[in-house]
Design a protein around this nucleic acid. Structure first.
Lengths: 230, 230
DNA sequence: AGAAGAATGCTAAATAGTTTACATTTCGAA
DNA sequence: TTCGAAATGTAAACTATTTAGCATTCTTCT
């Protein structure tokens, strides 16, 4: 499974100054999960903040009929559960470990105590949430506006920048299809076109981007709102 | 112009306790705008919080070629500009008044002063942002998963609940088309079907929903993730 | 009441995307 | 090294959506 969304957003943990990161670590209990293990269920009333230390976590919704939708996959340094601290909502998604995963759990009271001593904490949490909201607004615009090939290219670009190796995206066609909400056949056709234009190279279970700059300018020609600041 | 998105979300102003609302009012300068008047430009560096008192504000992005995309339309009690308080971002969108509009502007320093005296303020702002993020995550899921007729019905339902009269949505087919990112012809066909099923009545510049419950159950049959909590 | 502008209705041809089904390739584990 | 699972390639029939154009209806303003 590849990173699906929330690419290119500075992780919460990276926004924290060192001393806050340490304090938060003291207030946390680390738990390990195996691949596929359930971390929380939608509707759970145990409030708290969860910080991913290693591995990844996918947040899903399950329908009455058992069908599942993955809303987002979060990686190292990213958080979930902040809704339970800031609002009265229960856990809004099922959370499932992707690969071996370590998660720091900070209880509501642990968070409240620290936030009372360190007012910056709440501000950083709010800032992190605001950044994510901003990214989602832009992403939704893209989904509404852009034809599939351009949207695909843009998403691939984001994914490549988020991953360490900026030239390789680990992601199957099937994953991409789900992410973009289209069929695998359509994605196959689009990728074929992008490859024919020399923008990507298709591999087994991954996609290579030989020249990131070429991809950027290809997108820029087709998306008048494209700005590159990341 | 109709409300486009951000339906059904409790407005920031409604989350404030009375005394905070008053304090914030004292720190604010109210400005009036005519229909279509520019309130702010993307990239403006004047940080502050803007609270809509009456009328509406649309947030847009303009492309290099002059093309415009409306990201969201906000109504009474809703806010914008909070990104400039919580992050280092400049104003992220152009803001344009829709109809005669009054906006309270609270400067960054005004907000900071009040937030220092009233720690709840920041918490409520963070909660409001979190609620909006949550709504956006669900909305993006809907865009990816749902066939157009179901998505259309769901959006109409949200819009109807947000408006005072819950049985009427003021919205042209062209507005709806832009909101959903499809052509007007497609929307026309979808609405025709929904009308044939007795779920809506098309009028000139508005859509009526004779029985909200019928619409809900029609959606529930077609969207296994549909939950109605609002 | 009449005119103008806004919104809707409708059609036809072209394009895009889905579904289904199966063949082929790649990778990793036995 | 062989086998099986996962991923990709491809094709055909079908459905959905777009584009472009014009006719019609509704509303508002004068």
């Amino acid at each position: 499974m590849a990173d699906l969304l929330e690419f290119g957003i500075t992780a919460f943990d990276e926004l924290l100054p060192r001393h806050l990161r340490q304090e938060l670590g003291k207030a946390a209990v680390t738990r390990l999960y195996k691949d596929g293990e359930l971390i929380q269920r939608r509707g759970d009333r145990k409030p708290g903040l969860s910080i991913i230390r290693s591995g990844a976590v996918k947040l899903c919704n399950f329908g009455a009929d058992g069908s599942a939708v993955t809303t987002v996959v979060l990686g190292k340094g990213q958080i979930f559960g902040e809704f339970t601290l800031l609002t009265d909502l229960p856990r809004t998604h099922d959370a499932i470990a992707v690969g071996r995963t370590a998660v720091d759990q900070v209880s509501r009271s642990g968070f409240e105590d620290l936030a009372a001593r360190e007012p910056d904490l709440l501000r950083i949490l709010a800032g992190s949430t605001a950044l994510r909201l901003h990214a989602m607004l832009e992403l939704l615009d893209d989904f509404r506006r852009l034809p599939l090939p351009v949207l695909t290219a843009k998403i691939l670009l984001s994914m490549s920048l988020r991953s360490g190796e900026s030239r390789v995206v680990k992601c199957s066609q099937a994953d991409l299809a789900v992410t973009l909400g289209v069929s695998r056949v359509s994605i196959g056709k689009v990728l074929k076109r992008l490859q024919a234009d020399g923008l990507i190279i298709q591999r087994y279970g991954r996609i290579e981007i030989p020249e990131v700059e070429n991809l950027k300018s290809w997108i820029a020609v087709r998306d008048h709102l494209f700005r590159f600041e990341a």
